[in-house]
Write a protein that binds this DNA or RNA. Structure first.
Lengths: 139, 139
DNA sequence: ATCGTTCATCGTAGATAGACGATAATACGG
DNA sequence: CCGTATTATCGTCTATCTACGATGAACGAT
C-alpha cells in the first residue's frame, strides 16, 4: 500500500476528552469556536458526516467527496482545508489520491467541549499555562 | 415588571429534540451549520456560557455582557444579533434594557443535532417537505 | 520521458464577518 | 417636554469566506 502518513497537527484540539478538564475557560471558548467554525457550512457538515460514517476499511478519497457535493473540485478542496485546519479531519496521501478520515474521537471531543464550555463546570479563574494574557480573541 | 415579550423566531431551529427526527439530511446540515456559526467566535461562546449558567431569576441585561467582554458595546451588540439569528438566544425588552437568555433547551437540541447530523442515523432519501430542490446551500 | 489522473493552490470577484466610533431609537424620571 | 441611561443601528474599514476556472504538483502507467 505504501501510504505515506501526513503528519497531522490538531491546531490546538487534543481530541482527547481527558484533556478538556485542563483547559481554561478562555481556551475552551477558543477551541469550541474553532471546531464550530468547521461545522459552520452545510457542505462541511456533509463532509464530516460522510467521513464519520464510512467503515474504516472503506477509503474515502477526495474525488468521492467532490462527486457527492454540488460544488467544484476546488471549492471542495477548500472546505477540506478548513476542516483540516479546524481539527475535524486528516488526510493521508496514497499515490495520486488523498484519503480523508475524521480525527479519531473528534465528535465525542466536540460534544464534550460543548458541554464543558457552555455548562458551568469551568474554573473561570484558571489561566492558560503559557501566558497570562487577556482575552483578545487572537484566533 | 411589565416585560414586553419580544416574539422570537427561531430561524428554522425548532429547539425541540422530538422534531430532529423529521428533518431531512439536507435540513440537518443547514440547521447544524447555522447553529454552529453561532458558536464560531470565542466571544459568542462566552456569551452563551454566561447566559446558560445564569439562574433563571437573575436577569442578564446587555450591559452585563458588554462589561464582561473586552469588546466595544456595538461589537457585543452585533454578536448578540448573530446569536439571535442563529437561534441560540432571545431577548426581552424590559424598560430601557434588554434582558437576554438562551433559548430553552437549545444546548440539548444542538447536541442532539450534532449526533444526528454526523452519525449515520439519517434517512438520506428524505426530502424537505416544502420543495424538491437540490442542495444549493441557499443559506 | 511523457501522458493522464488526482488533488492542492493561485488568482479573482463578490459577499459576509468583525471591529470600532458615532448616531439614532426607546424608555424612564424629572 | 427634556435629560439620562441603555441598546440597536449606521457607516466605515479591514479581513475572511465562498465560489469558480485555471494552473501547478505529485504520482502511476505507458
Amino acid at each position: 500500500m505504501a501510504v505515506k502518513a501526513e503528519r497531522f497537527t490538531c491546531a490546538g484540539n487534543p481530541a482527547n476528552q481527558e484533556e478538556i478538564g485542563r483547559l481554561s475557560a478562555e481556551e475552551c471558548s477558543k477551541s469550541l469556536a474553532r471546531l464550530s467554525k468547521g461545522l459552520a457550512h452545510p457542505a462541511r457538515v456533509e463532509i464530516v458526516r460522510m467521513l464519520e460514517n464510512k467503515p474504516p476499511e472503506e477509503r474515502c478519497v477526495c474525488g468521492d467527496i467532490v462527486s457527492a457535493l454540488p460544488l467544484a473540485q476546488s471549492s471542495v478542496s477548500q472546505h477540506l482545508k478548513v476542516l483540516k485546519e479546524t481539527g475535524w479531519i486528516q488526510g493521508e496521501i496514497d499515490g495520486p489520491r488523498v484519503c480523508y478520515c475524521t480525527v479519531e474521537g473528534i465528535m465525542g471531543y466536540y460534544l464534550a467541549l460543548v458541554e464543558r464550555s457552555l455548562r458551568g463546570d469551568l474554573d473561570m479563574n484558571r489561566k492558560p499555562e503559557t501566558t497570562g494574557k487577556e482575552d483578545d480573541y487572537g484566533l
